[in-house]
Design a binder for these strands. Structure first.
Lengths: 226, 226
DNA sequence: GTCCAAACGGACGGTGTCGTCCGGTTAAGA
DNA sequence: TCTTAACCGGACGACACCGTCCGTTTGGAC
């Protein structure tokens, strides 16, 4: 992904501003991972060693900060997807993708929530990247199914379901790597063609690719207030 | 479960007080399901048609309210467990239990979070009920394994892992029943003995029964503030 | 009907976060 | 070195929720 300023043909931040921007992003990742996605902005600012004003100047909304902070992780996901497609073994590629993303969720505990929170309305900005991811993912799934490794009734949205469930697990148990790994192992085994025993209920209507959400992105549980 | 007042040999609430207590519980369930477990107390009070003071008088802490509001659901879980043990088919009993609890999580969206939030320190109050649940659960698992239906490497904590993951899913997608049902179907299939292909990573150290948490119950992600 | 303790509810002070404003500071070009 | 525009950060007002206080109402016993 290109440097942001050059994309917008921006006015080239001054040296100190650029330095502070970097510090803020680092601090944001740390704080979000430690205290959750909606830790006070002031905490991030303090950790970064800057004032709140500086933070708000650079990232007008919490959402903007979250998105920027986890852009790197999103890129990692994209790369994992590419690598998965490059794997000559279709199943191994699929498996590695799931494991990599879940590992990322496990390590950066802020990431899963960010993943869910950041994507619903990022359509405009990352449209083409998202679209491409969606296409690649579809290819990966089809390929693994054709090879007879991934069960035929696997629906691409199932990946989103699995990732969201795993996200919920690591959010509830931030320090239990064993639980996370267990869940991933179970899910992967149930995705294998040999595991297909009974019929599955109809798949979700979730859009995949950039990942969720359901039709109304605003309807998430936690953040809503009366 | 016995009526609370009689358990504590309480001073018998006055008629209006009892009526209001009931209204509060109903309102709490509705509000928690709609706005999440940490909706403002005032919202609950307003919905119940009482003042905040009345609410606080009856339930001094949010935790007390949550616990009381979902006691009924907890009881339903206990009953489901008993029924599961009564089922002559060990696997069907196990399967029904999982499906019932997950259905409850799906319907009462506040419930899963309450489940997680309420149990860490309820040791004293529900100790014996919890202990019994734990024992029954163990029996259910062993029985299904002995029958050759449930995979041998299934660990009781896996149930907690699965329920927490499902909890996370329905929290993220409150209105997507299809996603929930899909996840449950996948998980159940992967728990079947025939699905055991590769080895699983070591199980989590989660305590089961009354359900989680990890050692430090306070370490949950969302509620924590700086 | 009378009385009182229990219950009620609105109002209020306290706390924590948000996001902006403004006077001081500094990078960088002339 | 000097100038200036960009940048910085602490302070501040707005807001939401919390939990308590207190004057008023009401159930129910006599």
């Amino acid at each position: 992904m290109v440097e942001e300023s050059s994309r917008i043909a921006g006015p080239e931040l001054r040296a100190d501003a650029r330095r502070n921007r970097g510090r803020i992003l680092v601090a944001a990742r740390e704080v979000f991972a430690e205290h959750g996605i909606d830790a006070p902005m002031a905490t991030v600012a303090r950790r970064a060693g800057v004032g709140v004003a500086t933070l708000y100047r650079r990232f007008p909304t919490r959402d903007a900060l979250v998105r920027a902070a986890f852009a790197q992780q999103a890129e990692t996901c994209g790369r994992a997807l590419t690598e998965a497609l490059a794997d000559p073994d279709p199943w191994r590629g699929f498996q590695r993708l799931v494991e990599t993303v879940c590992e990322l969720q496990r390590e950066e505990q802020g990431f899963p929530a960010a993943f869910v929170a950041a994507f619903p309305d990022s359509a405009a900005e990352h449209a083409q990247a998202r679209e491409r991811a969606e296409r690649d993912l579809m290819t990966l799934v089809r390929r693994a199914q054709t090879a007879g490794a991934l069960r035929a009734d696997f629906h691409p949205s199932d990946l989103a379901v699995a990732l969201l469930a795993h996200c919920g697990l690591v959010t509830a148990l931030p320090h239990d790597g064993a639980a996370s790994r267990r869940l991933v192992a179970y899910l992967l085994q149930s995705f294998r063609a040999e595991a297909a025993h009974g019929a599955l209920p109809p798949p979700s209507a979730l859009s995949l690719g950039g990942l969720p959400l359901a039709a109304d992105g605003s309807q998430r549980q936690r953040p809503s207030r009366a």
